[in-house]
Amino acid sequence: MESSRRNFMKIGGACALGLGALPIVKAYAKNEKPQVAPDSKALVATKWAMVIDMKKCWEKGKPGCKDCLLACHSVHNVPEIKTIKEEIKWIWNEQYEHAFPGQENHFLPEEIRQKPFIVLCNHCTNPPCVRVCPTKATFKRKDGITMMDYHRCIGCRYCMAGCPYGARSFNFRDPRPYIQTELNMTYPTRERGVVEKCSFCDERLAVGLLPACVEACKCGALCFGDIEDPNSEVRKLLASRFTIRRKPELGTQPSVYYIV
């Protein structure tokens, strides 16, 4: 059989392509049923939300109480970097004028102006951080939690520019030497070069526990539950008390509500 060199090359190329595609075919042919499932103990919700009763916190809590903040930061091995530039915070205190900028006036009660407000990631329904992330390293879970995938984050910090609430912290340096609390051996730390934030304690919900801050508050100022469930505690609070959210005009629809 006569064949030109050109034809030989063509056939050879086609064969090489076929061989190269073999692993893909194999991967598709493999049809194992999934061997993974959520924990049966896990707390589930259509959409998680938190109501923070600041009045209760100020009135019932001991002055300067930081139980919720400390609980979160020690459970999640959050480092304590003392410089204001590189601070890492998941949940912390802010004054009213900083937590709710643009809504202050000169004649607010002293209490509102001076007392601390607890702030954390709002787990927005329309999170700008998720919209801008170029790798889906931060993403929205079905149950409303705005998650971080620390394995995938490239550290571009676009999410920090996107977040209207300053809820995100970047690991400018290796955080390990700055973890002041006793290491929680069951939770990882983060590494240099990724962005981190509150995750509504996804790891605790997965095994049937409430978020660490909610559990740590002795006066019950933090209420956590399913906002889509009309009988949940959060819905009852929202129906009976006047609540505000941070920067509602931006349309991000925060899942953290405040009773003032």
């Binding site: 992330c133 170029p134 790798t135 390293a137 995938r152 984050c153 490239i154 240099r192 990724v194």
Partner: peptide
Amino acid sequence: LGKPMRLLNVLLYPTPNS
């Protein structure tokens, strides 16, 4: 970038909304 070695994640997980 904070994690330049992961740069190719942008191609590996293309995200048209970003």
